[in-house]
Structure formats: C-alpha cells, structure tokens
Design a protein around this nucleic acid. Structure first.
Length: 638
RNA sequence: GCCGAUGUGGCUCAGCUGGUAGAGCAGCUCACUCGUAAUGAGCAGGUCGUCGGUUCGAGUCCGACCAUCGGCUCCA
C-alpha cells in the first residue's frame, strides 16, 4: 500500500496509507474533531466519513455544528424515521425525505392514518433503531439494476425518481433491513443520532402537484445535542407569543369572525396603526410625485373581459348582478386606474403619471389557506399604477425599488427579493414577456440586489419583482411587488401623443409597497412583538396618579399631551399603582407617567419607559419635547 | 380545495366509562386611598361551533356542515 498526500483546508498537508477513511483522518487531526465529524467535503463534494480520498485530494471535515453537518444529521434522522414507520406499518411507500430549514420531513404513502399518538410510537421505534447502532452503508448500482430493485420492493415513487435521473449509477443507503434511494452523505451509523423530535403530520401532494395523490408528511427536527433541540423547542414556544393573531386579540387590534371568514375586523386600536401607516404613506408618496385616485369596487363584466381577468382570474373573483347585467367585485385595481388614464388625452410631457390608490380588493382564497391578517379574502392594497414612456421604465422601476427599501428600513424590516417570471396562464406574446422580464432583471442588477428567480410565478399580465418579509415562525410572505406590464396598455389601447405628434403606447408599472395593509400590519405586529415604536403605538402614554389626591394634576398632564397630539390615557382607576403598571406593561404602552406628591410639587413626571424596570423623574416639558421628537422622527425605539 | 387536529362563559382551561355545566383571569358592585408587574369580599355571565341522529336521557356516542390551527396547493 502506497502513501497518499491529503491537503487540508488550512493549507497544510498530511500523508496517509492509501485507503484511509475521512473518519481516520479526522481522528488523526484530533479526537475531538473525530467526535464532532458527521461528513466530509472532498474536493468540494459532500461525502460520507467512510469515504477513502485519493492522493492529492483537498479534504475538509464537516462537523455537527455547521449548517451542512446539521443537514446530514437531519437527513439520517429522516431515514431512521422512515425505517421506524416501515417497521410499524405494512405497505408503506416512501416519497421523499429531505432535511429542511430547522428540521426534516418524510412523505409516506400508507393506508393507516397517522395520528399524534402514532408519532410517539414512531419516536419509540426510532430510539430502538438508534440503540441498535446499525452501520449505514452506501451502495452504488447501475441505473437499470437500481430501478429493478425499487420496483421489486414496490417503491413506485422511488422508481419515478430514478427514471428521471440522468446519471448511470444510482446510490442507495442501507441500515439494517432498511434501504433507501439517496445521494447522501449520512452519519456512519444510526447510533450517532443524539437528539430528535417528531412534530406533526400534514398532507402533502406527491411532488407538490394538486393532481397527484396526497401523501402523509411527518415533520420533525433533529439536532447535534439534546440541549440544542431543547433550545429550538423553546424558541418555537417564544415565537408563538409573537403571533399576530394572539397579539391582535390581547392588544385589542383586530378580530376575525365566523360570520366573515377571511374578512378581518379592525378595532379602534388597530385603526390607529392603520391610519399612522397611511399618514406616513401619503407623506412619502406626495414627495415621490404620486397623485391619488379612487376607483369603484364593483365594475361590469365587459371591463373584466377586456382586462383578461374574466378569463384568467375568475376562480379568485366574486360576482354580482345589477339590473340583470353581470358585474364583478374588483380583485385588482388596475382596470379602474386605466379608465381614468383613458379618460383624457395624454402628452409625452405628462409622463410618467403615477396614480396611487388605496384600493380595497376582494379575492376568493381557498378556505384552507386563510391565515389571520396574513392571508384574507378582502384587503386594501397601497397600489399605484405608473403610466410611462418606454424610455422611462428603468428609472421608474429603480424609483419604486428605492421607495420600498426606504419604507422597510423605517420599520427595521429585512427582506428578500424574488423575480417572478411568465406563468402558464399568461396573456401577451413571448417577446413582450421577454422584454418586460429583462427590464426588471436589469433594474435589480443595476442596483446590485440579490434575488431568487421564481419561475412561472408572475401575474398573468406581466413579470414581477417581489419583496418578501418573514413572520414569527419563519414563514415568508410577499408584501411589496413591482409588476411591469406591456399587455394591459395594449388591451385597453392606451396611448400618449409623442413629440412627433403620433400616438404611442405607454407601459404600465403596477406596484405596492406595503402590499396589503392587512398583511403588512400582521407583519408589523410580529416584527415588534406588539411593542410598537412610539409613532405607531395605539396608546403612547398612560398617566397614573398615585392616589386620588393626584388625579387633577394627572388629568392636566394628560390634557397637555393630548393637546400636542400624543395619544394619552389617564388611568385613574381605583386600583393599586402596581396593578395599573402591570396592565400598561401587558398592553406594551411605550411610556407610563406616574405622578404623586413630589411630581405635583415640581411639575414633573416619573417616566417609566417600556422595557425599563426603573423610572426616571423629568420635568413635564422635557418629557413632552422627548416624545414629540420621537414621534415626528418615527424613531424605532423604544 | 386537499390531509390531519381542534371547537365548553370575553380569555385560559376542567368536566371519568352518557344522568340536563365548573375554576382562574377579565367584567360589575362594595370596602381599602394606595409610589413602579396582580388588595380583599360579593355579584353576574354559558342554547357546551351549527344542524340532524341514537337514547328514557347527549357537552359526553354517531353523521353532515361551519370555523379555527398545522401543512400541501395557491397567493398581496
């Protein structure tokens, strides 16, 4: 056996006997590394620890504390779970079982309906498999043989996958009696799995296609250590406390009722936030050269046929009849804006025309998809339709990107961007779509924004740039969007008079910043966990007299604050101070002002800021200055 | 829409194998007049999601529907 030279990631190199495994190399580097090792990276390719590198290979040991390492652990956990399910139930057909962010899942096709109690049984069986410490072995087979193997085992879904593979060989991993088609890598044995928990069962269509059979998906998670798992479960519990549906009720912001599923009711305190958002919105849009319009909620059939909605969007629309004629409740604001544009003749000098509209739209969402304020059936879009000359497209799109970035920054949101391309049910020619998509791409590139391409997810009339925010449980929701549309102007025969005196076709940019006000509010609630910055807080201050003797002074403090527009409540209820403070804390009021003898005599207030255990006594005037400034600057803290 | 789970006073929950509902918090009343996270006592509040069935009798069993929750699909 000859010697081989292995290059390590720190640039050093070591010599080993030929046939050395990665695990042995890890042990050679340090016993601790061997213990933390879960896989290897050889010349940039993920492999098992049992892999034997060639002379001159660059080797990196993947450890359990890295992202890749964790995903190896989870992938192995998925196999162990599948093995347990196959031991417990007959006729199990396996779908796919990948590791995902925060965990893993496996899709099963079996007649038995998995219940929460079954999850406990499966966990128990998994523990047995771990105790058996079965070696996990990789086997490579020629494609045809692999296909026969899975067909013989009755694994039709796996066969479907193999049929689509392009490689000549296919790899399997086995542990004890269990074999699964898999790329790997995996832990070296089942005993290496230390911490896992099954979370829930859900239905999932095979390959995510509604036309396919629905499989049973078991969601679970796994970590390198029990303490990491515990920390993750605790985080999930904490996240639930930020849930906007819970906070919406606790803070009395909004409610949902059986009488109108998907139609949220905003309470007075919710409306304060709503109105503050819109005040800010109006300020910024006026500065950015937008003018505001308002169009009807119900418009006739002809309009929607012309726009293409009647054909392409019907499943999402609500209909009605007036004087025997068909009408539709608007699912989008664009046709209305178009009618206003078309109402008069436009010169090239006028463009771009930016019509903003706070439009209430109704869309029929499938019942299973409704979710608090995040997904509803009636919502207000902070819409705008920009009618522009082709030479203005780039500037306008960049303008909107900057506007959205400014807005999100004001709230401290971080976001990610997606570019959605031509969908199946598109209208308009390929050339037009190509041109529109490239224009959006160019704008993103010009501004150096990272984005993910979302194939086939554009609107039926044009591609779009989507801005996504993340909720308390890590789910992302599309909020802002910019859509470039060459199709509607065509369909509605829009025009402007150019400097040559001829008619020309404008382009339309549809865009929203908040997206849906309702959804954005939901995001805000979770983002701030209900502790809104002062400018957004429904109640900005609560004044609390220590006892009855201080009620007059407290009342005058409250009045002075209200006079300058501060939302202030006087809590002079016949309750102990501690009780009232507790309540104001739970309501996440930014400032509590306690006034007693000493405050009365010095015309001051004892300020207890949200999140602060200690109060600070300042003159009323200086408090007023402070809160005024925080509100006008729309400061993020406290 | 599909898969699974859940549905008892405003909120959180109890109610065993069927015998016509219970607690805490919140609310109201009274007393206490109080210095930075819950003062005490009393009162009031529920067609047990809806509809139908089984039964002498249903919150408890069965069925359908509705809503909600977690996913899938879809989307702002």
């Amino acid at each position: 056996m000859g010697q081989i030279r292995i290059l390590l990631k720190d640039g050093s190199s070591r010599n080993y006997e030929q046939g050395v495994t990665l695990e042995q190399i890890a042990l050679d580097i340090s016993p601790r590394l061997r213990k933390a090792a879960v896989a290897g990276l050889v010349d940039g390719v993920m492999v098992d620890l049992t892999y034997r590198p060639q002379d001159g290979s660059v080797v990196e040991i993947v450890t359990e504390d890295s992202e890749e390492g964790l995903s190896v652990i989870r992938h192995t956990a998925a196999h162990i779970m599948a093995q347990a399910v196959m031991r417990l139930f007959d006729g199990v057909k396996l779908g796919i079982g990948p590791s995902i962010e925060d965990g893993f899942y496996y899709d099963f096709d079996l007649d038995h309906r998995l219940s929460p109690e079954d999850l406990e049984r499966i966990e128990e069986e998994m523990r047995k498999i771990i105790a058996e410490d079965l070696p996990i072995v990789r086997v490579e087979l020629p494609r045809e043989e692999a296909l026969r193997k899975v067909l013989d085992a009755g694994q039709s879904y796996k066969a479907e996958l193999i049929e689509e593979f392009e490689d000549d060989t296919v790899s399997f991993y086995s542990q004890g009696e269990f074999v699964d088609l898999c790329k790997g890598p995996h832990l070296v044995s089942t005993g290496r799995l230390k911490a896992f928990k099954l979370l829930n069962v859900a239905g999932a269509y095979w390959r995510g296609d509604e036309r396919n059979k629905m499989l049973q998906r078991v969601y679970a998670t796994a970590f390198a250590k029990q303490s990491d798992l515990q920390a993750h479960l605790t985080r999930l519990e904490e996240a639930k406390k930020r849930d906007h549906r819970r906070l919406g009720r606790d803070l009395d912001l909004f409610s949902l009722h059986e009488e109108g599923p998907g139609f949220p009711f905003l309470h007075p305190k919710g409306m304060v936030i709503w109105n503050e958002l819109l005040t800010y919105w109006h300020e910024v849009h006026a500065r950015a050269g937008y003018s505001e319009i308002r169009t009807p909620i119900i418009l006739n059939r002809g309009l929607w046929e012309n726009s293409g909605h009647w054909d392409k969007y019907r499943e999402n629309m609500y209909f009605t009849e007036i004087d025997g004629q068909d009408y539709a409740v608007k699912p989008m604001n664009c046709p209305g804006a178009i009618l206003i544009y078309r109402n008069s003749l436009h010169s090239y000098r006028e463009l771009p025309i930016r019509y903003a509209e706070l439009g209430l739209v109704h869309r029929h969402e499938k019942s299973g998809t409704l979710h608090g304020l995040m997904r509803v059936r009636a919502f207000t879009q902070d819409d705008a339709h920009i009618f522009a000359r082709p030479d203005q497209i780039q500037d306008e799109i960049l303008g909107v990107i900057n506007l959205i970035d400014d807005f999100y920054r004001t709230f401290g949101f971080s976001y990610h961007v997606e570019l959605s391309t031509k969908p199946e049910n598109a209208i308009g020619s390929d050339e037009i779509w190509e041109l529109a998509t490239e224009s959006l791409r160019a704008a993103l590139d010009a501004r150096g924004i990272d984005y993910k391409v979302n194939e086939g997810d554009g609107a039926f009339y044009g591609p779009k740039i989507d801005f996504h925010l993340t909720d308390c449980l890590g789910r992302t929701w599309q909020c802002g969007t910019i859509q470039l549309d060459f199709v509607m102007p065509e369909r509605f025969d829009l025009s402007y008079v150019g400097d040559d005196g001829d008619k020309h076709r404008p382009v339309m940019i549809h865009r929203v910043v908040f997206g849906a006000l309702e959804r954005f509010m939901g995001m805000l609630i979770e983002h701030f966990a209900g502790a809104f910055p002062v400018w957004l807080s429904p109640v900005q201050t609560v004044v609390m007299p220590v006892s009855e003797a201080h009620v007059d002074y407290a009342g005058s403090v409250a009045e002075q604050l209200r006079d300058i527009g501060v939302r202030c409540e006087l809590d002079d209820r016949n309750e102990k101070l501690g009780y009232r403070i507790r309540e104001a804390r739970l309501q996440k009021v930014p400032y509590m002002l306690v006034v007693g003898d000493s405050e009365v005599s010095s015309q001051s207030v004892s300020v207890r800021a949200r999140g602060q255990a200690n109060a600070e006594t300042v003159s009323l005037d200086s408090f007023i200055e402070r809160i005024k400034r925080e509100i006008s600057e729309r400061k993020l803290t406290p």
